[in-house]
C-alpha cells in the first residue's frame, strides 16, 4: 500500500465519520460543520487516488482547488442563511 492510497482510505474514513455526525447531531451549525468535513474527505480521496496510479496529477488538484473555493463560499452562504433564520425566530436545534 502506498502513502497515496492511504490518503484515499483516510478520506473515506473522514467521509464516513462525518456522515455519522451529520445524521446524529440536531443543531444546524453542527450539521453544516459535518457537511464541510465530508467535503474535505472527498477532496482527500480525489487527490489521493489518482496520485496512487500515475504520480502527482495536476488535473484533480486543480479540480479540488476549484471545489475548495466553492465549498468556502457555499459555507459562508449557509452561515448567512442560518443566521437570518435564527434572527427571524427560528430554532437552530429543533
Amino acid at each position: 500500500m502506498t502513502i497515496d492510497l492511504w490518503y484515499a482510505i483516510v478520506g473515506s474514513i473522514i467521509v464516513a465519520l462525518s456522515v455519522f455526525a451529520f445524521l446524529t447531531s440536531r443543531h444546524l451549525m453542527k450539521k453544516l460543520l459535518a457537511f464541510n468535513i465530508m467535503g474535505s474527505g472527498v477532496f482527500l480521496i480525489m487527490v489521493g487516488l489518482p496520485q496512487h496510479q500515475h504520480g502527482v496529477d495536476p488535473v484533480p488538484q486543480a479540480l479540488v482547488l476549484t471545489g475548495i473555493v466553492v465549498a468556502v463560499s457555499a459555507t459562508a452562504l449557509a452561515l448567512v442563511i442560518l443566521r437570518r433564520y435564527v434572527r427571524a425566530g427560528g430554532n437552530p436545534a429543533p
Binding site: S25, R26, H27, A76, V80, R83, V86, R87, G89, A93
Partner: peptide
C-alpha cells in the same frame, strides 16, 4: 451577514 444577536437567545440542547 446578519448580526449575531438572536431574539430568542441561542439555546443548544443537543
Amino acid at each position: 451577514a446578519p448580526g449575531d444577536s438572536s431574539p430568542r437567545g441561542g439555546d443548544d440542547d443537543d
